[in-house]
Each structure stands twice: as C-alpha cells, then as structure tokens.
C-alpha cells in the first residue's frame, strides 16, 4: 500500500511549506489525483487520517480533486474525457489522440493559521 508513502511525501512538503510561511496549525490540504495514477483517493484519505494522528497536523482535512483521463484530438482539437480507454475522438472519429490529463499527483495548496 504505497498510499502511506505518498502521504509521507505529502506531509514532508506540507511541513516545509508551513515552516517557510509561518503557519503553525494546518486546517486543510488540497491535492490533485489523476484517474490514471495508482493512487486510490479513499485509501489516501484513510492513510492521511492515520498519519496525522498525534502530529501537529492532527485535525486537518484532506481535499482531493480527482482528475479524469482526458484526451485531445490531434486532428480536430476536440477535448474530451476518455472512458474505458476508447482512444477515438467523439467528434471526428480519429484515433490520433493525445492524453492531456489523468497522471496528476500534485499538492495544490494548504490552509492554516
């Protein structure tokens, strides 16, 4: 279950950012998780809640922005959501598809005092 090591990496970045910005108590952490990553949002929430117990982050909320697998047609430039790995443009039928989103594993922002 690598969501725990992902959580640890998230909290390392958070701690460094809190220190740099003089934040002492964390209220919320916002992250962005793509559909095509091997990270399961529910498991990540579970790991986050466990990992922050008894730490200065205790009580903070984790907000996850889930990003679907997105595609852009190289022929007609239509942007769309790819479902069931259907690599076909819904508008012109081309299979020249560029994947534009779904690999995100980002920390967006934090809120605190």
């Amino acid at each position: 279950m690598h969501e725990m090591s992902i959580t640890r990496s998230m909290l390392e970045i958070t701690a460094a950012q809190m220190e740099a910005n003089g934040i002492h108590s964390l209220k919320k952490l916002k992250v962005r998780i793509g559909e095509l990553t091997a990270v399961e949002p529910d498991v990540l929430r579970f790991c986050f809640d466990i990992a922050i117990k008894g730490t200065p982050f205790e009580g903070a909320a984790l907000e996850i922005e889930e990003v679907p697998l997105g595609g852009k047609c190289r022929i007609c430039a239509t942007e769309f959501k790819i479902t069931a790995f259907e690599n076909r443009c819904p508008k012109c039928g081309s299979n020249e598809i560029e994947r534009t989103s779904g690999h995100e594993l980002d920390i967006i922002s934090l809120e605190g005092d």
């Binding site: 992902i6 990496s9 998230m10 390392e12 970045i13 950012q17 809190m18 910005n21 934040i23 209220k27 992250v31 594993l105 980002d106 920390i107 967006i108 922002s109 934090l110 809120e111 605190g112 005092d113």
Partner: peptide, 15 residues
Amino acid sequence: MHEILIEEKILARND
C-alpha cells in the same frame, strides 16, 4: 486563516 499555494508534485523529491 491563510491559504498557501504550493503546486508541486507530491513525489517531487523522488523525481
């Protein structure tokens, strides 16, 4: 309450 924008890859250190 302050919101601090981070916009960093979670696995940036690994990368």
